[in-house]
Nucleic acid binder design. Structure first.
Length: 264
DNA sequence: AACCCCTTCAACCGCATCATG
DNA sequence: TCATGATGCGGTTGAAGGGGT
């Protein structure tokens, strides 16, 4: 038996919010803030659980929510960021001011994914070569670039590296194939130990819409690894606190490889 | 008009992670 | 270091609405 749903307590409302509930929530947050979502419903008089209140506020009632259809530029941004970050909707939303992770997720599943699937046509040879070369890739991190002609073949998003990566580790990658590879995932226990000087921190201002801290590959790193360009390397799956406290994040990086050079 | 099917999207659920004592 | 509660996140659900027959 699983854990009881948070809203299963007797007397709490579920489902769509009424205008009156919205008014109460907005009024309360304007006057008192939302330091404690758990306590908010009781203090405001709402018959909702704290989780429901938080979702309603962050996804709908926040004053800085941008309404209306997505522009071409926003859609392109989502597509590019999804290539880079995968289904990390909150990370994508952080780069699109006024848009929520829930909304972006919906747009992705209802519009953008369909559009991309139509464009992702790759050869059977490429699929089989990738499948062979990336044996052992984490299933949960795989993406199925379905092709109507061979729907049973699954293309991995992330290829694990050997403990000591060298140019030969990438020998199976050709220019043609890289059009269909948006990221290479480096397994935490196989990434080589590298010196911190390989990376440089970029401070980005809040009003640019980007997080205040992210990390860029330096030229030294690019020279060591065979990528034409690596846009951003982000700490993956760790909070800034952990990053500050530990150097372990070097072992778990998501690399955006935009155009991998063909290895002779 | 009635029914069915499909799409959309707000909301929920459960797990992961973080914060705190 | 561990336990516990709070919060964040991504996957999923289901009601509502629109279009086709």
């Amino acid at each position: 038996m699983g854990r009881a749903p948070c809203c299963q307590k007797m007397g709490l409302n579920k489902g769509p919010w009424t205008p009156e509930e919205d008014r109460i929530l907005v009024s309360y947050i304007q006057n008192h803030g939302h330091d404690n979502w758990r306590a908010l419903p009781k203090q405001s008089g709402l018959l909702r659980c704290g989780k429901s209140c938080r979702l309603r506020w962050t996804n709908y009632l926040r004053p800085d929510i941008k309404r209306g259809n997505y522009s071409k530029e926003e859609e392109e941004t989502i597509i590019n960021l999804h290539e880079m970050l995968g289904n990390r909707w909150s990370a994508i939303a952080a780069r699109l001011p006024g848009r929520t992770d829930n909304e972006i997720k919906n747009v992705w599943h209802t519009h953008l994914k369909k559009r991309l699937n139509q464009n992702n046509v790759i050869t059977q040879d490429t699929r089989q070569q990738l499948k062979h070369k990336t044996n052992g890739t984490r299933q949960s991190e795989s993406t199925n670039l379905s092709n109507p002609t061979c729907p049973e073949v699954e293309i991995p998003r992330h290829a694990p590296l050997s403990p000591q990566p060298s140019l030969s580790d990438f020998s199976w990658v050709t220019n043609e194939e890289t059009k269909n590879i948006d990221a290479i995932y480096v397994e935490s226990d196989t990434f080589p130990e590298i010196d911190q000087s390989f990376l440089s921190e970029s401070q980005v201002t809040e009003d640019s819409g980007m997080p205040s801290d992210f990390w860029e590959i330096t030229e030294d790193f690019q020279q060591q690894y065979p990528f034409n360009s690596i846009d951003i390397v982000e700490p993956y799956g760790y909070s800034q606190n952990i990053i500050d406290d530990s150097m372990e994040f070097w072992y778990d990086l998501l690399i955006r490889a935009d155009g991998i050079q063909e290895i002779p």
